[in-house]
Structure formats: structure tokens, C-alpha cells
């Protein structure tokens, strides 16, 4: 089956992001296809490249990146939700006159149109919310 994931929860604040990552790994392990994870609302914090959790906790940002590297899962971040929360890639940082950037590949800033497409393209869009 073809899946998409919509993640609305911030990492390390509630269960949503942890559950979403475990769900993502499980559906892939069971032979399903995961097209994309879309990060929206507080879920955009999962794309923070500067995240440095203690070593004895799961590293969620690296976990998402690994999904992309090993299974080609797209990591799409809503640009409007990200910018207002201080999450931006190098291009946006330049545009907004900011020093440094907080989002990098494999996460990509994109629009909500991608989320609509994902939902309609996949057999299942599963939402993880706070």
C-alpha cells in the first residue's frame, strides 16, 4: 500500500513525532511504500538541523533523514509554518536577512499544495497530532 504521513507534533514535546517515526519504519519493514512525510503546524520543528538531544534519547531529526537516505522518503516541510517558527533553509535565510539557517537537505521547504497532492495520491494519509 502507498502511504503518506502528516506530522503535526513537535519532537520531544509529545508522542506524535516518536509514534510517526516508528510507524514510518514499520510500514516500510512490512513492504509498503512511504512516499513522503509532510511536516506541518508544530511538526516543522522535526526539521531543525541544530537539534542536539541527549545521547540516550532517540535522535528524531537524524531518524527522519535516515528514512530519506535509505528508503527515498521525501521530507516536505510547510514553508509558511516553518518560517514563522524560525525554521528556514539557506535560501530563505538569505531572503530574510538572517545569519545562519536551521533547515537543510534532505528536508525541503515546500507549500501546502504538496500535502493535498500527497493525500490524494496515496492510499492512506496518516496524521500524527499532539
Amino acid at each position: 500500500m502507498r502511504y503518506g504521513i502528516l506530522l503535526l507534533g513537535a519532537p520531544y514535546s509529545n508522542q506524535a513525532a516518536h509514534s510517526a517515526l516508528r510507524f514510518a519504519r514499520t510500514i516500510i519493514a512490512r513492504g509498503h511504500q512511504l512516499d513522503s512525510v509532510f511536516f506541518y503546524h508544530e511538526g516543522v520543528h522535526n526539521a531543525a538541523r541544530l537539534a542536539a538531544p541527549p545521547q540516550d534519547e532517540p535522535h528524531l531529526v537524524d531518524g527522519w533523514a535516515e528514512l530519506q537516505r535509505e528508503h527515498g522518503v521525501k521530507l516536505d516541510v510547510c514553508i509558511a509554518a516553518a518560517l514563522r517558527r524560525g525554521l528556514m533553509d539557506e535560501e530563505q535565510a538569505g531572503r530574510h536577512g538572517k545569519e545562519g539557517h536551521s533547515v537543510e537537505r534532505p528536508f525541503e521547504l515546500t507549500g501546502l499544495g504538496q500535502l493535498v497532492d500527497l493525500g490524494l495520491r496515496c492510499d492512506r494519509l496518516v496524521t500524527f497530532a499532539p
Binding site: 506541518y40 503546524h41 509558511a80 507549500g111 501546502l112 499544495g113 497530532a129
Partner: peptide, 19 residues
Amino acid sequence: SSLLREGLDMALVAAAFGR
């Protein structure tokens, strides 16, 4: 929370894309 507003944004974008 901004959930309701961001849900509405989602609806507007989908409609703008002709859905």
C-alpha cells in the same frame, strides 16, 4: 492553538488548486 487556523489554510490552498 493555531491548529484550526492552519487547518483552514490547508482548505484554502486545496481550493486554490482546484480541489
